[in-house]
């Protein structure tokens, strides 16, 4: 039997459990590192690690608002047209941005850097201001609640306010977040991706293999 672990840029990844379901994810992070260069890591921002849901049927790689914001992607410019994506449950606005994607190969203990573009879910200026205002209002209730004694009417008053504000923030977040979707263009960086999904009753045993094209990797970082 061939020892695949000896193949360069190859990895085997088990499906990740999410609420009892197992799905194919890759360990991924995003950055504002400029394309075509290998700058020092201190010169750019890297997002926290994310679960990148593999969806080779999607036309784009999509990231939530909070990830793009955390790496300082250029905000929606005045007059800039957004891409409106409609589907089940409503519609969202996206903008396309150049973005570096880091993918971890845990088998090889290597991180690969790719120069890509992503669709970034963005709020309108009005929604962003609303979100900012709600956050300030939330903190304005949390701080005085800490001074109130538990089980008093004052404490409960603040709790009602806090719960209401949190509900409003959650409603907005639900339209801007969702997961990271790794779409078809990203797999141009691969020699192959091979799903071993042969038993729905035993999805925890399912896994996928991939091999990355060497020439598509902008940088390899050992870890």
């Amino acid at each position: 039997m061939k020892d695949y672990s000896r193949i360069d840029h190859f990895s085997k990844v088990f499906y990740t459990e999410d609420k009892g379901r197992h799905r194919p994810y890759i360990d991924i992070a995003f950055s504002n590192a400029p394309p075509g260069q290998v700058p020092d890591a201190a010169d750019y921002l890297i997002s926290p690690k994310a679960f990148g849901l593999i969806d080779s049927g999607a036309d784009h790689t999509a990231i939530p608002f909070s990830i793009g914001k955390s790496i300082g992607l250029a905000p929606l410019q005045e007059g800039e047209k957004t891409i409106i994506v409609s589907g089940i449950g409503g519609s969202i606005h996206c903008v396309e941005r150049a973005c570096t994607i880091f993918m971890a190969n845990n088998l090889k203990r290597e991180i690969y850097k790719f120069d890509e573009t992503v669709w970034w879910k963005v709020p309108s200026e009005e929604i962003e201001q609303t979100l900012k205002g709600l956050t300030e209002k939330l903190n304005a209730n949390i701080e005085p609640q800490k001074q109130a004694l538990a089980d008093t009417n004052l404490f409960k008053h603040f709790q009602v306010q806090i719960d209401q504000i949190k509900g409003e923030i959650i409603a907005i977040n639900s339209t801007l977040e969702g997961g990271v979707l790794v779409g078809r263009p990203f797999f141009n960086n691969f020699e192959f991706i091979q799903f071993n999904h042969n038993d729905r009753e035993n999805e925890h045993k399912c896994f996928f293999n991939y091999k990355v094209k060497k020439k598509k990797i902008a940088q390899i970082i050992p870890f």
């Binding site: 679960f51 909070s66 589907g87 089940i88 977040e177 969702g178 997961g179």
Partner: peptide, 27 residues
């Protein structure tokens, strides 16, 4: 990250199965 020298994950726990990542998949 600064204290542990390990990069954690930040994830929004969805309130329902209506995940916009999947919605986008139909775009």
């Amino acid at each position: 990250l600064a204290t542990e020298k390990l990069r954690p994950t930040v994830l929004l726990v969805q309130t329902s199965g209506d995940n916009l990542a999947q919605l986008l998949a139909f775009a």
